[in-house]
């Protein structure tokens, strides 16, 4: 979808309306609005507990102009399974005529960690829905705790940069490939910094019959310690450094959607962020090297998977 069309759709029918209380510079509402704009069909959303849920539905207000349901932290995929089943029951008996799209939103906490089983079950069962993980790389609704998506080296409130352990020492989980391992029709990795790419993927995700998963890098100024105005720029560096490659897996076939002309070094991604500050003090150089090597290795693997390299 071209930017003009997207802007028009988001303005005309925002679906997620203004007045929510997400932080300035939060990428989540940009991601949500952009994705929702890619379908003109009626759409029903489920939301895991998290920033997006809490900040958009403080009773008696709601920012949602579409049917929306929240039940708990780890169960948005199971919840939408039930809604889809109800829809199928109504369709089957002719009590409902409309073609409805279904979507579930969760942060990395609910998607990578506590709700991974629920997501896996829903994907395996093959419900026709789109799952979107807005990945800000930490548990932000509760104040910046470590998640399975938190990158190596980052400080988190449950894994602070201490003398004995300088922040998270494990590399992040790869939810995109975990989702793909369910052999579902469509899985893609996207970023808030490239809305043309994101909306193209959302369109595909809505189009396929069966489950589709979008894992979207979602800058969090609060956790990352970056200025709200730099949200798009930070995510862009994430992509240009190959830390967060844009690719899709359509019926099992990997495709790289964007290849940076010049790979930006990882220190350019980490240096502006408060959570990596401790890596730039003398003695921690090896950690920066570990990060770069890991990103390089992953990138090489991905290039091969995408047929970009033998």
């Amino acid at each position: 979808m071209n930017p003009k069309e997207l802007a028009e759709k988001v303005t005309k029918n925002p679906k997620l309306t203004a007045g929510h209380r997400l932080c300035g510079g939060c990428a989540a509402p940009i991601i949500v609005k952009s994705i929702l704009a890619t379908t003109d069909d009626p759409i029903v959303a489920a939301n895991a507990t998290g920033c997006l849920e809490v900040a958009t539905t403080i009773y008696p207000y709601t920012s949602w102009d579409i049917p929306w349901i929240h039940s708990a932290f780890e169960n948005a995929p199971a919840t939408i399974s039930g809604v889809v089943a109800a829809y199928n029951a109504l369709k089957k008996t002719g009590k409902m005529k409309e073609n409805v799209k279904f979507i579930a939103f969760g942060g990395d906490g609910s998607s990578y960690d506590i709700g991974l089983q629920s997501l896996s079950g829903a994907l395996e069962r093959g419900h026709d829905f789109v799952y979107v993980c807005y990945n800000n790389e930490g548990y932000m609704n509760t104040g910046g705790q470590r998640s399975g998506a938190t990158p190596y080296g980052a400080a988190a409130t449950t894994d602070p940069a201490g003398k004995a352990r300088p922040g998270k020492m494990e590399f992040k989980k790869d939810l995109t490939k975990i989702a793909a391992a369910h052999n579902i029709p469509y899985v893609a990795q996207a970023s808030v910094s490239n809305l043309a790419d994101l909306t193209m993927k959302a369109e595909k995700a809505f189009k396929v019959k069966g489950p589709a998963v979008l894992v979207v890098l979602s800058t969090c100024p609060t956790l990352w310690g970056t200025p709200p105005a730099k949200t798009i720029e930070m995510a862009k560096i994430g992509v240009e450094s190959c830390f967060w490659p844009l690719y899709e897996i359509e019926n099992g076939v990997y495709k790289l959607n964007y290849r940076p002309a010049k790979k930006i070094p990882m220190i350019d991604f980490m240096k502006p962020q408060r959570r990596f500050k401790h890596l730039f003090v003398p003695g921690n150089e090896h950690m920066l090297e570990n990060v770069q090597k890991h990103v390089d290795d992953e990138w090489e693997t991905l290039l091969k998977l995408c047929g970009e390299k033998a």
């Binding site: 199971a78 399974s81 629920s118």
Partner: peptide
């Protein structure tokens, strides 16, 4: 809905 756990069973029931 042949769910993968009781947690998901009740979650799907709530949605439905």
């Amino acid at each position: 809905v042949r769910v993968e756990s009781e947690h998901s069973a009740m979650s799907a029931c709530v949605g439905a």
